[in-house]
């Protein structure tokens, strides 16, 4: 597939206006997924080994982005088992988001250069 064709295909996937049949939403999600894995691969190889622990704590906070799913689950006003599970998930994800970013900040603040002079 040439570059313009690829762009067209992605655009079609995004808008759902494929020439012959609509592209399944899964295919579009999968496109995003694969591209994100590649971005992650390149970005993470550039992380200095000295900061691998902060990397883990911050990725911990980042994976708690599932709070988005938890909020949807907890969303309805009428309480049901589904809502309660969602609320618990919101709480757990919040532990990670606040804990993860704050502990990363605390660690990063410790990394200082040698003061010469």
């Amino acid at each position: 597939m040439s570059a313009p064709e690829m762009t067209q295909a992605v655009a079609q996937a995004a808008t759902g206006h494929a020439a012959h049949a609509a592209v399944d939403p899964f295919v579009f999600s999968f496109t995003v997924f694969v591209l994100a894995v590649i971005v992650g691969y390149h970005v993470v190889w550039n992380v200095t080994p000295a900061l691998h622990t902060p990397l883990m704590s911050v990725t911990n906070a980042i994976s708690s982005i599932i709070i988005v799913g938890a909020l949807l689950a907890a969303g309805p006003v009428e309480m049901s088992l589904a809502t309660v599970l969602g609320l618990i998930a919101v709480g757990l994800a919040a532990v990670n988001i606040f804990g993860g970013f704050m502990v990363t900040q605390r660690m990063l603040a410790m990394f200082k250069k040698r003061s010469r002079g």
Binding site: P25, F26, S29, V32, F33, A36, V37, V39, G40, Y41, V43, V44, W45, V47, H52, L55, M56, T59, N60, I62, S63, I65, I66, V68, G69, L72
Partner: peptide
């Protein structure tokens, strides 16, 4: 993210997933 069809979750999850795999 796939379950909910939410690209934000997919991107963040994929970043963390590849980060852990590299480590």
């Amino acid at each position: 993210g796939f379950t909910l069809g939410n690209n934000m979750l997919i991107v963040a999850g994929a970043l963390v997933g590849s980060s852990g795999a590299i480590l």
